[in-house]
Write a protein that binds this DNA or RNA. Structure first.
Length: 671
RNA sequence: GCUCGCGUAGCUCAGUGGAUAGAGUGCUUCCCUCCGAAGGAAGAAGUCGCAGGUUCAAAUCCUGCCGCGAGUACCA
């Protein structure tokens, strides 16, 4: 019986006993982990709650301790339970039957569902993340989005879901238009010239997205004084939206090149996608028209004849104002007949949920080195390619979008729920997160001049338009260089290739953990020293702990092979003695902690919070370091105890490796 | 104005109503003849923003206030 199963059974015991003995129905049984191993393995503060409910129901006053005693008897007869204590005013502290649990779980998989198969009965969910405007290189703020989304999809897969990963490409928006304005009107380039430039850049080791980053900034600066240039933006945007003209062709080239660059950046971090849905197709395949039709029919939106919004199609939205004068109704179709971004987003969300009644056409966009495919949407049926999986139609849709967009996300969720009340708002989940900002010092370190006012601010928002930000590839490069220095100092005898590979794994671990250790609603104020650190609460610390654990198994004597150690556990009395001895608590608490991975993953999935798993992983690594320092594992003289220690070390390294893999972090061969 | 988020150790942050509020970092002092020191041990460091309330029990829930941030477009 795994820990999760035991917990489930115990909760059920409490629930049914409360119902049978006291006639009180519980839906949620609170359970907690006691602060110390000596206080038990799982605790129920449920007697207090019961006392209150009995009083409410019957007026009868019952002593919590007395109630706890009744529950105690029931819990004691449950499987895997050693003993139960009533502590304090009425706590129920449950102690597991240690040796039974330990022997049963010695070779259990830490996460049964990893890696997940696309089983036929698995629930399909969609996760949209990254969605960087394809007009420049990704910066560290974008990476927070991608790492969050990628980690969350790994967590969902670990809970048995069939996950589809989408990266939305806004290839017809103003940001792309701005860079196109730069190319055409500042650089005076046509498509051929841009393709030539692209070739020159790649042959000199420079990247297209970095070039666009600078150009985008240049356009932004120029707009401030050049009204004529600014007027070109609307013109260019219109051409791009319309399609089928040289400007649109040029824009498509620029956007597609940037998408390739961003995919390469993310691949460095182990982040991949299944599908790239593009805005151009949402426009050209008339997704909005279809959604519009449904919304009109269902009366979700209405045409405004007078007032502030005269001539527009609006959706009522009162959440943000106390008034009922409809001032805050959301406009979906402007008075000139064009659709707003939010309108398009509702149509797109409907497609994701499989309730739009339209589909994209698809073609293969990219194949990763190991053969995994990324597909992209196309509006031209003739260009669609065979072999595309079925996309969209998720049971639940997770959108990883920063918290500044929670207002439009609210509207999308409510709009979609109004069209499909049976699915409701629960089907759309906004995984919001706070931005990555720069400390004033970090901004100056990047060479930006700050005003007096800015210098006093707690942080400064990154801005692609201003070119203010830490580019993802730059930071990964720095991390890899620093890690390589450390690897070289320790393993000068390894091959260059191997050293670089290890440095890469460490760099990815450092960056991913750094972005995951903060909870979603914490603004990360970026600090170079902290982000580049390999000490303390870092990915590197967790990797190092797993590497040490692995090294134990390289030095194991033949007689102490894992199999023979597990066999030695069959002497359950000897195991029992060891686990109940002086150092037994220490060994036992390690075994319990490492068994909590599955529970933690489920908790992270339920709370939509990857940081929960990151914190657990760090605590597991720390606990293993402690265990490692307290016990001589290989040199332990007692045969059974040595077997127990080796088995615990094995369980710990497998749990740690699984936890790290779910965070998208690999364990290097050596460090 | 309204909506949302935040305020916990010098700093950066964890903390599903439950037991003595915890990490990392910084600071002081130790520990490699050892299964790898990217590590470990010990110490100092707290008015959980303020004031009320609910509760057997509040950092956690409710109300008010103070401070900080974001959002509140016929932009995306």
């Amino acid at each position: 019986m795994s820990l999760t199963e035991i917990q489930k059974a115990l909760r059920e015991t409490v629930r049914s006993t409360a119902a049978a003995e006291f006639g009180v129905e519980f839906d949620q049984i609170a359970a907690e982990t006691p602060p110390k191993t000596e206080l038990g393995d799982i605790a129920f503060p449920v007697a207090f709650e019961l006392a209150k409910r009995i009083k409410q129901a019957t007026g009868e006053k019952r002593n919590p301790r007395e109630i706890a005693e009744v529950l105690k008897t029931a819990l004691e007869s449950a499987r895997s339970v050693g003993r139960v204590e009533v502590a304090g005013a009425g706590y129920l502290n449950v102690f597991f039957e240690r040796s039974t649990f330990f022997i049963e779980n010695a070779d259990a998989e830490p996460l049964p569902a990893l890696p997940v198969s696309k089983a036929a009965n698995a629930i399909k969910v969609c996760v949209e993340h990254t969605s960087v405007n394809p007009n420049k290189a990704a910066h560290i703020g974008h990476v927070r989005n991608s790492v969050m989304g990628d980690t969350f999809q790994r967590i969902l897969k670990a809970t048995g879901k069939n996950v589809e990963i989408q990266n939305y490409i806004d290839n017809t928006g103003v940001q792309v238009a701005d860079v196109v304005v730069g190319f055409v009107y500042l650089e005076e380039m046509d498509l051929a010239a841009i393709m030539e430039l692209d070739r020159e850049l790649s042959s000199s080791g420079k990247s297209f997205d970095y070039y666009c980053w600078d150009l985008y900034t240049k356009v932004g600066v120029e707009y401030q004084t050049n009204e004529e240039l600014k007027a070109k933006r609307a013109e260019v945007l219109h051409m791009i939206e319309e399609g089928g003209n040289p400007t649109a062709e040029l824009a498509d080239y620029v956007a597609t090149r940037n998408v390739h660059c961003i995919l390469e950046t993310m691949e460095r971090l182990g982040i991949r996608y299944d599908l790239l849905p593009r805005e151009s197709e949402i426009l050209h395949l008339h997704f909005w028209d279809k959604a519009f039709e449904q919304m009109k029919q269902l009366g979700v939106i209405h045409y405004e004849k007078e007032g502030k919004h005269a001539g527009c199609w609006v959706m009522p939205f009162e959440e943000h104002s106390g008034t009922d004068d409809h001032e805050n109704d959301k406009i979906l179709v402007r008075s000139n007949g064009t659709v707003t971004y939010t309108g398009k987003d509702i149509a797109y969300q409907m497609w994701k949920l499989g309730i739009l009644g339209l589909d994209f056409h698809y073609r293969l966009f990219h194949r990763y080195q190991d053969g995994q495919e990324v597909w992209i949407t196309t509006g031209d049926e003739a260009k669609s390619e065979p072999g595309a999986p079925e996309f969209g139609g998720g049971e639940t849709i997770y959108n990883v979008i920063d918290s500044r967009q929670s207002y439009p996300q609210d509207i999308v969720r409510k709009g979609v729920a109004a069209i499909s009340p049976e699915r409701g708002e629960k089907a759309s989940i906004h995984l919001s997160y706070e931005m990555v900002a720069l400390s004033p010092a970090a901004a100056e370190e990047l060479g930006f001049l700050l005003s007096e006012e800015d210098r006093k601010r707690p942080f400064i928002e990154m801005s692609g338009r201003k070119g203010l930000g830490v580019k993802a590839d730059d930071l990964i490069d720095r991390l890899e260089a620093n890690a390589l220095g450390e690897v070289e100092a320790r393993h000068s005898d390894s091959s260059e290739e191997e050293k670089k590979f290890i440095a890469h794994q460490i760099a990815v671990g450092a960056l991913r953990y750094f972005l995951l250790k903060f909870t979603r609603n914490t603004v990360i104020v970026f600090d170079f020293k902290e982000a580049l650190s390999f000490e303390g609460e870092t990915g590197c610390f967790c990797q190092y702990s797993a590497v040490r654990a692995n090294s134990i198994f390289r030095k194991l004597a033949a007689a102490d092979s894992l199999d023979s150690c597990r066999e030695r556990l069959s002497d359950s009395d000897a195991v029992k003695t060891i686990l109940s001895s002086g150092t037994g608590d220490d060994i036992w608490s390690m075994a319990v902690l490492l068994s909590r991975l599955e529970e933690t993953v489920e908790q992270a999935a339920a709370a939509n919070e990857p940081a929960i798993l990151a914190k657990y992983t760090f605590n597991l690594a720390k606990a293993f370091n402690l265990f490692y320092h307290h016990h001589r594992i290989i040199a332990e003289p007692n045969d059974t105890k040595r077997a127990v220690l080796i088995v615990v070390a094995d369980m710990a390294r497998r749990s740690l490796t699984s936890a790290l893999a779910t965070l998208g972090i690999e364990v290097p061969e050596k460090m």
